[in-house]
Design a protein around this nucleic acid. Structure first.
Length: 111
DNA sequence: CTCGTGACTCCCG
DNA sequence: TCGGGAGCCACGA
């Protein structure tokens, strides 16, 4: 028990889940933003981990979470292709390089 | 508590 | 933007 913050552990996970659920249709968010908004700017990797754990049991829009570069980090055979299709169904357009224009689709919590 | 893991991000070049 | 390397942090066992 060496938490620097009085609000770690479940708080981070809970916040992350809430933030992800708050992402509107047709928008996307990055791991870093979710992590920062959840309370740990450096815990971007955990956001992905949470998605892994929670998306299987909860109805989180995990496909709306991508990396800071606007691309899907998941490998196609791992579900990246599914994610791309889900996003396209919501109206998100991919670049020729399968990249998303964050300028248009990036959504930031709290606003 | 300790250890391994990971859908990240930053820092060069 | 791309790549390789290093750092970070939370969760599960």
């Amino acid at each position: 028990m060496n938490q620097r913050f009085p609000k770690t552990a479940k708080t981070f996970t809970t916040n992350a889940k809430q933030l992800i659920k708050m992402i509107p249709t047709g928008k996307v968010c990055t791991y870093g933003i979710i992590a920062a908004a959840a309370g740990s700017p450096r815990a971007a990797r955990q956001v992905a981990w949470i998605l892994h754990s929670s998306s299987q049991k909860e109805d989180l829009p995990w496909h709306r979470v991508i990396n800071i570069k606007g691309k899907i980090s998941l490998k196609p055979y791992q579900g990246g292709e599914l994610q791309k299709q889900l996003l396209e169904m919501e109206g998100i357009v991919f670049d020729l390089n399968e990249k998303i224009a964050l300028d248009l689709y990036l959504w930031i919590p709290e606003g």
